[in-house]
Amino acid sequence: MLQVTNLTKTFKDTVAVDNISFNVEPGKIFGLLGPNGAGKTTTIRMILNIIRPSAGTILFEGKSFTKEFFNYVGYLPEERGLYKKSKVLDTILYFASLKNMDKKSAVDESIKWLKKLEIENYKGKKIEELSKGNQQKVQFIASVVHNPKLLIFDEPFSGFDPIIQQIIKEILLSFVNSGKIIILSTHQMDTAEKLCSDIFLINKGKEVCSGSLSQIKKQSGSNNIRIEFEGDSSVLNSSPFIAHADCYSGYAEIQLKDNILPQDFLRSIIDKVAVTQFSIIEPTLNKIFIDAIKRSSI
C-alpha cells in the first residue's frame, strides 16, 4: 500500500500541493484526476522522490523512501521521448539496468513485451526509424519491463490510436489482477471512469473529492434523470423542480432539486410533453469532475 499523508509542496510563494492525503491499495487502479496545473505532476514527482515534499510523509509498504524503492517503481511520464539514435532493445535494456534487473531476465522480459505490443521485429532498429506510436510503445515497455510493484502512468493513452489504447487498457487491468499498485493520472474522464475504482480529485493543489468511484457517484448522483420526449423543451426550463437541465434535441439530462423525487417531477410534466423514455441515471465522472471544480472555484 502507498500511504500519502498531509503532503505539501511550496515553490517560493506558490503552494503547488496543499496538504493532501490518500491511500493507494494494491489490486485497484487509483485515478489522480484534475485539470491542468492542478498539482498532479508535482504529487507524482514527490511520490517518485524526484522532488522533496515541503511537508508530509509518503510511505510505501509502511516504509519511507529507501533506494530500493527506485527498483519497485515504474513511471510513464506525460511527455514522451527516447534517445533517437539508440536502438530499441538497447534502450529498453538500459532502463532495465537502471532498475537493477539482471541482463538475462531483462532480455527475456523485453522480448516478451516487444512481442505483446507487436514490435518485436523493430528491436534492432534505431528509435528515430520508428513511427510515433511505436516509439510510445517502446517507452511503455521501458516503464513496465522490470515488473514494478508500483506503477505510475501520466496520461498513458495520449498519442495512442484506439486499438493500442485498448491493448494498454487490457494490460493495465491485468496488472490489477496481479496485485500491483497503480496510479493513473489523467484528465480523460471517460477512461478514468472505466478503469479506476478509487479516485482523488485535485484542483489548485487541494483535494476536491476522493473515495471509491461508486460511492462518489452515489453521493452526487441520486437526483439525475434522463428523459426522452416529444414536445416543447421550454417546459423543462420553467419547471420549479429542476436545479439544472442540459437540453439536447429530443432528450435532456436533468438534475433535480435536492428534495424532489423523480416520480413527482415526472407527474408534473407528463401532461405537457410526450415522454418516450424516463430513467434515473448516475452522473458521469466528467460531470462530477466539472461540478466539483466549479464548486471548489467559487
Partner: peptide, 17 residues
C-alpha cells in the same frame, strides 16, 4: 539537454539519485 527536452530525465531520476 536531450534528456531534459524529452523528459527522459524524469524516468532516470525515478530510477536513481
Amino acid at each position: 539537454l536531450e534528456e531534459k527536452s524529452n523528459r527522459l530525465i524524469e524516468i532516470i531520476i525515478s530510477s536513481c539519485t
